[in-house]
Structure formats: structure tokens, C-alpha cells
Computed example of a mutant assay.
Amino acid sequence: MTTESLPSNIYAIADIHGRADLLDVMLASIAEDAAVHGSKPVVIFLGDLIDRGPDSPKVIDQVRATLDLYPGSRLILGNHDFFLRELLRGTLTSEDAVNWLDWGGVATLSAYSDRPVPDLANIAADIRRDFPHHVDVLENALTFKEIGRFCFVHAGIRPGIELIDQDEYDLRWIRAGFLDHLDVFRHIVLHGHTITASLRPEIHSNRIALDTGAYRSGRLSAAVIRDDELSHFLCTELTEEGAIRIGEWRPE
């Protein structure tokens, strides 16, 4: 694929974790930007749409609408999204269920259903009945996406292994071995999963980290890629007055 055939404007958004309020402002800004540039953007969601924050079902609705609106946009399945997908498939293991509830799944299940949270089978049946489009979103998610110089994943990649041969577990969970790897990869890796120490996007020699802890920091971040180059970041954040502001951010 040549550079000329690549999308001219790509937005990569990581780890929304139920913060539909922050995502709403982000998507409105992307729509305004698309109008200015005269072309539809491609939006890549890097996973972890759900858990911890208050509005996980609404976030999936927002993501579905965005995927429909902007051709070529995709969802990368995060480790938290994986738990919900497995629940809806009826294949969630007991161990994963316990871990999921400990790691924020209670917020998601409570947002979907008034049933007691341990009643996973009936909650899953309710979701499949009332939110079949959410099932479709999760089932159509990718584990990674290559576009030009960039690779979009949730957690990262295992060094020394071709993308097509990567273990899906690594793509959703990896930290050690990836975050401390300093050599270049075949692509620049855009990822979330691990909250940055600065709570801002961080650029490294071989990767760009985008998880700015939206569910607890009140800051959701997106990388803006123009013509196969990182242009800048967009950040929506909650102010002390309770408003949500958005601004462009460029690292020094």
C-alpha cells in the first residue's frame, strides 16, 4: 500500500473505560475537524471501552455509531472488552469472571441490568436481548490493525514475533517485554492498556502510549495521524468546575 492510498486523517483513542462524557466531546471535535479538512476521518479505538467508569453501554453505542459513520474505522478488542464478549458468548471462565468483577466489571454489569451482579447468566441473556448491536460490535473487533507506518493494538506486541504470529493474549495484556523494549519495531506501535506516568500521551522511540487513565484522571486522549505522521494529540478533560474542555497537545 502506498502512502497516497492511506487515510489522510486517523484518530486513535485508547481506554475510554465508561467515560461517555469525555468521548462525546472528543467525537464532536473529530467531526468538526473532518468538516474543516473535507474528508471523513478513520477512528481506531484501541480497546477497553468498558468497566470502571459509569456509562459503558453508552460508550459502546458511541463507538458503534462512529464505526458506521466513518468507513475504515475499527475497534481493537481490549482485555476488559474481551471479558464482556466471553460473557455474551457463554464462554467466560469462572477465574476470568472473578477477575473481571474485581477489575471494574461490576460497574459495567450494573449499568446494563438491575439484576444482582453475581447473576451473570441472566444478565448476559438480558444484554443479548436488549443490546444485540453491542454483541455485533464486540464480535467484529480486531486484535490489531496495521496502517502505513503504524500498528494499532490494545496492550502492545511481543518483540521478535511477526504481527500475524502474535499471541492474542499478548496483544491484550502485555507489559513486561514490551514497555521496556528499546529497539525499533517494524511499525510504530500505538497502544493503551498501561496508564502513563505523566497522565498524558507519551512518545517513545518505538511506541506511543495513549492510556491517560480517563476513568480516574478525567483525561481521555487521542493521537492524530496525518499523512502517515503523528501530528498532535487531542485531550478531553474534566475541569475543576465540572465542565469538559478539549485541546490540542504537543509534547515539548
Rank of each mutant, 00 (worst) to 15 (best):
S5I: 06
R200F: 15
D180A: 02
I127F: 13
L238K: 14
G192M: 12
G38T: 04
V189P: 05
G47T: 13
P132I: 10
V59L: 05
A214N: 07
D170E: 15
L171V: 09
I161C: 11
T66F: 00
D24Q: 11
D130W: 05
E248T: 10
D81A: 04
I147S: 07
I246K: 10
F185I: 10
N99E: 11
V106S: 11
F152L: 12
V98A: 05
I174F: 13
L234M: 09
D119E: 12
S113K: 07
T108C: 09
N140H: 15
H154S: 13
G53S: 07
L199W: 04
R19P: 10
H154W: 12
R52G: 07
P57S: 02
V189F: 04
Q62C: 03
R115I: 01
N9R: 13
S110M: 10
P201I: 12
L230G: 08
D136Y: 01
D183K: 09
F150L: 01
D81N: 10
V135R: 06
Y215M: 06
D227H: 14
N99S: 13
D15M: 06
S8F: 01
A155Q: 12
Y169E: 15
D15F: 08
A12E: 10
L234Q: 07
E4A: 08
I50C: 08
R219A: 13
R172I: 15
N206A: 00
P251Q: 06
L163E: 01
P54K: 01
P7N: 06
F83C: 13
A34T: 03
Q62T: 02
S73M: 11
E162T: 09
D126F: 07
P71T: 10
P116W: 11
P54R: 02
A97F: 00
E32L: 11
F185Y: 15
F178I: 06
V137E: 04
I123F: 07
E162Y: 02
S56D: 00
D33W: 07
L69C: 03
T3M: 03
R64C: 04
P54G: 05
A31E: 12
A34L: 00
A14P: 11
W103K: 10
T236L: 09
D227Y: 08
E162P: 02
